[in-house]
Nucleic acid binder design. Structure first.
Length: 688
DNA sequence: AGCTTTCAACTTTTT
DNA sequence: GTTGAAAGCT
C-alpha cells in the first residue's frame, strides 16, 4: 500500500509465520493485508510448499491481478507463475474445466454473463418485461448463493411470487444444462456439488490446493464458505484475511456469520488482529474508530497509526447539493494551490448512491477539472454493443459458445431454444463447439429439417461474413461492410422491435453507428488520437484483425487508471482504495444511513450502513471532509436535511491533542515530502 | 379503452 | 436525466 514499512510489524510477522493450522487475520483498513498475504505465500514456499499447491483467492479480477503482481515482485516470476492466485469464480472455472465432466458438463462449457442470463430468463419464463426478468434474476442468484436449488427454493418459497420464481428457476437451469452453459453463481455451486458428491474429485482438489489464503473473507457468502470448507477439509490449512468492520455486501448475500462461526468450527483457530494502520492520520483514524465503536463487536480491534494528528476532520455544512459540490470544488482547488505536488488523482468524492454524482460532475466540468465516475456503465457494457461484440467474437473464434448463443438469437431468426437445446446436447456428447456441431451430418437424428436449414443458413452467413471481414481493409470499405452486415441481420429493426420507446431505440442505433465508426477508424492506416494525449500509430488492418484485438482495446479503454483525474465513486466501489484527500458527500439521515420508504431499518441494516461510513472515512490518508446538507432535494421538493447520526458518532470535537503548530507544520511537510518521493518512485517505475 | 402528458422518485454490484 | 406510474384526454 502507500507506506509499506521496511519490515513486517510483530502482528504481521505472527500472521505470516503461523502455518500450523487455521488462521484468521483481522486486517483493519490500511493495515497491510496484501503485504501479509504475499509474505505468507513467500513463507509457504520457504516451508517447501510447491507453488502450485498454494491458493490465494480474491473476489475481483483486479485484486487477483494485484496479488499476483505483488507476489511476483516478492518471490520472483518463476515461483509466482505456478501459484494458484485467482478469484473464487475463476477457481470454479478451473475445477469445472478439469472435472465438470463428472457432473455431465462438457469441457468447453460456456459461461453466460448477466446479460445472457437475462435473455435466457426472459425466454424461459416467457416474458418480455425486463424489469420482471431482472427481479427473477436477482432472486435466483440470491437463492443459488444461499445454496438452494430450484426444488429447495420451491419448498421454502413463502409467497406466490417466490413460487413462480422457483418454477422459472427450474426451467432456467434445465435450459442452461441443455446449452452446456453455466452462470456466474454456478461457478461456485457446481464445484461445491462436485466436491461434496464425488470423493475422488474432492481428494484430488484437497491435494492440489493444500494451503488456501482467502482475501476479503468478510465478503464470502454461504456457498463460498461451503466451497472453502470442502477444499480445506479437516486439515484446516488456511488463512482467512478479512475485516468484519468492512463487511458492506450483506445485501448481495455475503454473511458475516462466516466470520462468527470460524472460531467454533475450528477450535484451534489462531486469531491475529492487525491494528497498525499505514494509511491515515490519527484524527482520521479516531473518527473511524469512534463511529465503528457503536457497532457490536465480534472481535475487538482499534486502529492506530504513527503519522501524528494531522489535519482535523472537517465538517462541511451546505445549503443544498449545488452548494455542496462547490464546497468540494473549493477544497480541491485550495489544496491544489497550496501544495504544488498535488495531482487531481489525489482527490476522491465519495457518496452513497450513484445519482449523487451528477451535481459534482457538472461543477467539476465547469471548473475544467478532469474526473472519472467509477462504476458508471461503460460504452462497451451497453446491450447493443455487446450484441455486436458477440458477433465479432464469433467470427474471430467460432468455438466461442456464448458468442454463438448471443449471435444466433440476436436478432431472432427462427432458431429457438428447442433447436439450441438439441444442438447443445449434441455438442456436449461429441465434445465439439456449438458452431462445429451445426454442420454435422448426424444432427438430423435430433432436429427437424427446418431447424437444420435455419442453422445452416446461419452458419453460412457467419462464414461469409468472416471471409469478407478478413479481406476488407480501409475505413470506408470497412464501414460499408459493417453497414451491409447490420442490414443483413436486420439489427436496426431488431432495436425498434425490442423497444417501446422510439427515442431509446434511436439512441441505441446511434450507439451502434458510433461503434461502426470506431471500428472503421481502426481499419484505416492513419494516426489516431486515443483519449486526450496518447497517439497511436495504426497500420491498415482488416476488419477481422480489428475484431481480434477488440477485447484488448476495450480492457485498455476501460482501465484508464493511469490518468490524472479526480475520482467520483460510490462508497461501495471505494473499498480497498485510498486517496490523500477524501470528501464524503451527503452524510445525511436518510441517505447515509440510507432509509427506504417501504423497508424498515433493522439494527443489522443500520450496522451495515455504519460500516459503510467507516469504509468511507478510512479511505482518506491526509485530509477528510465530511459534508452534510441543511436542505436537500427529494423529488421536486426541498426538505430539511438532518445531519447523519454518524457525524455525532465521530466525536470530532473530542480528543484532539493540542499540538505545537510548528510541530504540525513539520509533520505536514514530511508527509508531502513522502508523497513527492512516492510519486518520483512511481514515475521511475512507469518509465521502466 | 387506449393514448399522451405530467409528475415524482431515484441504493449499494462483482463474477 | 431517466423511468415508471398515475392522471388526464380523446
Amino acid at each position: 500500500m502507500s507506506n509499506p514499512p521496511a519490515t513486517l510489524n510483530p502482528a504481521q510477522l505472527e500472521a505470516v509465520y503461523f502455518l500450523d493450522g487455521p488462521c484468521l487475520v483481522l486486517a483493519g483498513a490500511g493495515s497491510g493485508k496484501t503485504r501479509v498475504i504475499t509474505h505468507k505465500i513467500a513463507r509457504l514456499l520457504q516451508a517447501n510448499y510447491p507453488a502450485k499447491n498454494i491458493a490465494a483467492i480474491t473476489f475481483t479480477n483486479k485484486a487477483s491481478q494485484e496479488m499476483r503482481e505483488r507476489a511476483r515482485s516478492l518471490v520472483g516470476p518463476r515461483a509466482a507463475k505456478d501459484l494458484a492466485i485467482s478469484t473464487f469464480h475463476s477457481l470454479g472455472v478451473r475445477i469445472l474445466r478439469e472435472d465438470g465432466v463428472r457432473l455431465g458438463l462438457k469441457e468447453k462449457f460456456s459461461i453466460l454473463d448477466s446479460d445472457d442470463v437475462l435473455g435466457v430468463l426472459r425466454d424461459a419464463g416467457g416474458t418480455t418485461d425486463v424489469k420482471l426478468a431482472r427481479h427473477w434474476q436477482w432472486t435466483i442468484s440470491l437463492w443459488k448463493n444461499m445454496g438452494l436449488n430450484s426444488v429447495q427454493a420451491q419448498a421454502q418459497a413463502e409467497s406466490d411470487d417466490e413460487r413462480v420464481i422457483a418454477r422459472v428457476m427450474g426451467l432456467y437451469d434445465e435450459r442452461l444444462q441443455a446449452y452446456q452453459a453455466v452462470d456466474f453463481d454456478d461457478l461456485i455451486t457446481l464445484p461445491l456439488k462436485l466436491l461434496q458428491t464425488n470423493d475422488e474429485a474432492r481428494a484430488k482438489w484437497q491435494n492440489t490446493l493444500r494451503y488456501v489464503l482467502v482475501d476479503e473473507y468478510q465478503d464470502t457468502n454461504a456457498v463460498q464458505y461451503e466451497l472453502l470448507k470442502a477444499i480445506v477439509g479437516g486439515r484446516g490449512m488456511f488463512t482467512a484475511v478479512g475485516d468484519d468492520d468492512q463487511s458492506i455486501y450483506g445485501w448481495r448475500g455475503a454473511t458475516i456469520e462466516n466470520l462468527k462461526r470460524l472460531p467454533t468450527e475450528y477450535p484451534n483457530l489462531k486469531v491475529i488482529p492487525l491494528e497498525q494502520n499505514y494509511r491515515s492520520t490519527s484524527s482520521i483514524l479516531r473518527a473511524a474508530n469512534n463511529v465503528i465503536a457503536a457497532n457490536p463487536k465480534i472481535f475487538e480491534k482499534k486502529l492506530w497509526s504513527e503519522f501524528g494528528e494531522g489535519e482535523p476532520v472537517a465538517l462541511i455544512e451546505s445549503d443544498g447539493e449545488e452548494h455542496e459540490a462547490e464546497r468540494a470544488l473549493a477544497r480541491i482547488q485550495a489544496v491544489l494551490a497550496a501544495v504544488p505536488s498535488t495531482k487531481f488523482a489525489d482527490f476522491a468524492i465519495l457518496y452513497r448512491a450513484n445519482h449523487q454524482a451528477r451535481v459534482f460532475e457538472q461543477v467539476l466540468r465547469r471548473a475544467q477539472i478532469p474526473y472519472k465516475v467509477s462504476g458508471g456503465q461503460s460504452f462497451f457494457d451497453r446491450a447493443e454493443i455487446k450484441d455486436l461484440c458477440g458477433w465479432l467474437r464469433l467470427i474471430v473464434n467460432q468455438d466461442d459458445d456464448p458468442a454463438f448463443l448471443r449471435a444466433v438469437t440476436t436478432p431472432k431468426r427462427g432458431i429457438g431454444h428447442q433447436t439450441l437445446a438439441g444442438l447443445g446436447e449434441f455438442s456436449g456428447q461429441w465434445k465439439v463447439s456449438l458452431f462445429e456441431a451445426l454442420f454435422s451430418e448426424s444432427l438430423a437424428t435430433k432436429l427437424s429439417a427446418k431447424a437444420i436449414g435455419s442453422l445452416h443458413e446461419f452458419g453460412r452467413f457467419v462464414n461469409d461474413f468472416q471471409y469478407r471481414a478478413g479481406q476488407t481493409t480501409g475505413s470506408e470499405a470497412a464501414r460499408a461492410l459493417l453497414l451491409e452486415w447490420l442490414k443483413d441481420i436486420g439489427y436496426e429493426q431488431h432495436l425498434y422491435d425490442g423497444e417501446e420507446n422510439e427515442k431509446v431505440a434511436a439512441a441505441r442505433w446511434s450507439n451502434v453507428m458510433d461503434f461502426v465508426d470506431w471500428i472503421a477508424k481502426r481499419c484505416g492506416g492513419k494516426t489516431s488520437h486515443e483519449g486526450s494525449n496518447v497517439v497511436v500509430e495504426l497500420e491498415p488492418q482488416t476488419v477481422l484483425q480489428v475484431a481480434q484485438t477488440i477485447s484488448v482495446i476495450i480492457s485498455l479503454a476501460e482501465r484508464g487508471d493511469d490518468q490524472d483525474q479526480v475520482v467520483l465513486s460510490t462508497l461501495h466501489a471505494s473499498k480497498g482504495l485510498e486517496w490523500p484527500h477524501v470528501f464524503l458527500a451527503g452524510v445525511n439521515e436518510g441517505l447515509l444511513p440510507f432509509r427506504s420508504e417501504d423497508e424498515d431499518m433493522t439494527p443489522e441494516r443500520l450496522e451495515e450502513e455504519r460500516r459503510l461510513m467507516y469504509v468511507g472515512i478510512t479511505r482518506a490518508r491526509t485530509t477528510l471532509g465530511v459534508s452534510t446538507l441543511r436542505r436537500r432535494k427529494k423529488g421536486r421538493e426541498t426538505i430539511q436535511g438532518i445531519p447523519s447520526r454518524f457525524i455525532n458518532e465521530m466525536k470530532l470535537g473530542e480528543g484532539v491533542a493540542k499540538e505545537d503548530p510548528r510541530e504540525k507544520l513539520k509533520k505536514l511537510r514530511a508527509q508531502f515530502a513522502q508523497q513527492a518521493a512516492e510519486k518520483a518512485a512511481d514515475l521511475k517505475q512507469k518509465a521502466r
